[in-house]
Amino acid sequence: MAVKRSLKKHTDNVMRFLEGLSSREMQFDLTRDQGESEVKLKILEKHVQDIH
C-alpha cells in the first residue's frame, strides 16, 4: 500500500509538471526536433497515464 501511495504521489508530481509547461516551452521543444520530441512526449504521457 505504501508503494502504491508513493507511486501515485510521484505520478501526480510528473503530471503537474507536464501540465505546468508553458506552450512556449513545449513549442520550442517540438520545433527544435518536432518528429522525435512529439513521439517521445506522447510515449511519456502514455506511460504516465498507464502508471496513474
Rank of each mutant, 00 (worst) to 15 (best):
E19N: 13
K42E: 06
K46F: 02
D12E: 10
V39W: 13
E19T: 10
S6L: 05
H10D: 09
L30F: 14
L44A: 14
R32W: 13
H10Q: 13
Q49M: 12
A2V: 07
K40L: 10
R5G: 05
A2I: 06
F17H: 03
K46P: 00
G20D: 05
T31C: 05
A2P: 00
Q27I: 01
A2E: 12
I51V: 15
R16S: 04
H10M: 03
K40W: 11
G35Q: 14
D50C: 01
F28N: 13
I51K: 14
L7T: 08
H52T: 06
T11G: 09
M15F: 01
E19M: 03
D50Q: 09
K4Q: 10
F28S: 07
K9A: 10
M1S: 14
S37H: 15
D50L: 11
S23A: 06
E38R: 15
M1W: 13
G20L: 02
R32K: 14
T31F: 10
R24G: 03
R24D: 03
I51A: 14
D50A: 07
V14C: 05
V48H: 01
L30N: 05
V14E: 03
H52K: 15
V3I: 08
Q34K: 12
S6W: 05
E45P: 00
T11A: 09
S37A: 15
K42F: 09
G20Q: 02
V14P: 01
E25F: 11
G20S: 07
K8W: 00
R16W: 03
S22G: 06
Q49A: 10
Q27W: 06
E19S: 11
L18V: 01
V48Q: 01
L30R: 13
K9T: 11
L18T: 02
E45R: 11
E19W: 03
T31A: 10
G35T: 13
Q49S: 15
L7Y: 08
K9S: 14
H52F: 09
L21T: 04
A2N: 10
H10P: 00
L30V: 07
E36G: 03
V48F: 01
K42H: 13
R16I: 05
K46I: 02
R5Q: 05
D29A: 12
L18N: 03
V3Q: 14
D33I: 06
N13M: 09
R32L: 09
R5W: 02
E38G: 08
G20P: 01
T31H: 09
S37C: 11
M15G: 00
F28K: 04
H10I: 04
L21M: 07
D12T: 07
T31L: 11
S6H: 04
K9H: 13
D33R: 15
L30W: 00
L41W: 00
H52R: 15
G20T: 01
E19H: 13
L7I: 11
E19A: 13
K42Y: 13
E25S: 12
H52S: 15
H47W: 08
R24F: 00
L21G: 08
